[in-house]
Amino acid sequence: MTLTLTVPPGAKVRVRITNENGETTEIEVEPGETVTITLPAGSTVRVEVEVVDPDGRKRTETFTLKP
């Protein structure tokens, strides 16, 4: 399973991925970048995406991906 994120110009994104064992991976994606994350097959993962807009506003979306 893959997750692809494209960050709009001016925004910053931090992604936290937590697996079933509670292990967390965190990455930051710079403005204008596209990143593809390969998620472990057969695992349920929690993905938290934090977006910081150019004006400093933050918003966070959290979702769970199941196999």
Rank of each mutant, 00 (worst) to 15 (best):
T64K: 01
E28T: 04
T6L: 14
T24F: 07
V7E: 13
D55W: 10
V13G: 04
P54C: 12
E26M: 04
D55F: 04
T6I: 10
V47N: 00
E30Q: 05
L5K: 01
V49S: 00
P9G: 07
A11Y: 03
T25C: 13
P54Y: 04
T18D: 08
T34Y: 13
A11S: 09
V29K: 09
G22I: 10
T62C: 15
V29F: 11
I17N: 10
V45D: 02
T62R: 02
K58T: 09
V13L: 02
P9N: 07
V47P: 00
V35G: 04
G32M: 14
V7H: 09
E30K: 10
R14T: 11
T36C: 14
T60I: 13
E26N: 06
I37Y: 12
K12H: 08
R59C: 14
P67A: 14
G22M: 10
L65N: 00
I17P: 02
T62M: 03
A41C: 14
V13C: 09
K66D: 14
V35T: 07
K12P: 02
T24N: 06
N21E: 06
P54G: 04
R59D: 00
G32P: 12
K66C: 15
E23S: 06
D53K: 00
V51T: 12
P67S: 11
L3F: 06
R46N: 04
N19T: 11
G56P: 00
S43N: 13
E48L: 03
R16I: 03
V45T: 06
E33P: 11
T44G: 03
V49K: 01
V51W: 15
P8N: 12
G10W: 01
E28A: 08
T25Q: 09
R46M: 11
L5N: 02
D55M: 03
I17Y: 15
E20T: 04
P9E: 07
V49I: 12
E26A: 06
T62A: 03
L3E: 01
E23M: 07
E33V: 11
V13M: 06
K66I: 15
T36M: 12
E48S: 04
L39N: 10
V13A: 06
E20G: 05
T25W: 11
E28P: 12
F63I: 15
M1C: 14
E20I: 05
I37F: 13
K58S: 05
V52Y: 03
R16V: 03
V29C: 09
R46D: 03
T34I: 12
L39R: 06
I17R: 10
R46G: 02
G22Q: 09
K66G: 15
R57S: 09
T44W: 15
F63V: 15
P67G: 09
A41D: 07
I37V: 10
P54E: 07
E20R: 08
V52G: 00
I17E: 11
R16Q: 03
V52M: 05
L3D: 01
T18P: 08
V29G: 04
P40K: 13
T4Y: 13
P40Y: 14
T2S: 06
I37P: 03
E48Y: 02
E30M: 05
P40F: 14
V13I: 03
V35H: 13
L39K: 03
V52C: 05
V15R: 01
T44P: 10
L5A: 05
P31T: 09
K66Y: 15
I37W: 14
R59L: 03
T38C: 15
V51D: 01
T38K: 05
V7Q: 03
T44C: 14
V49Y: 01
V13Y: 01
T6K: 08
T38H: 06
G56Y: 00
E61I: 15
E28Y: 03
P67W: 15
K12G: 05
V29T: 11
T62Q: 03
T64F: 15
E26P: 13
T36A: 08
G42D: 11
V7C: 07
K66P: 15
T64E: 15
V29Y: 09
G10H: 05
V47E: 00
E30A: 06
P54W: 05
E50K: 01
V49P: 00
T44F: 13
E50D: 04
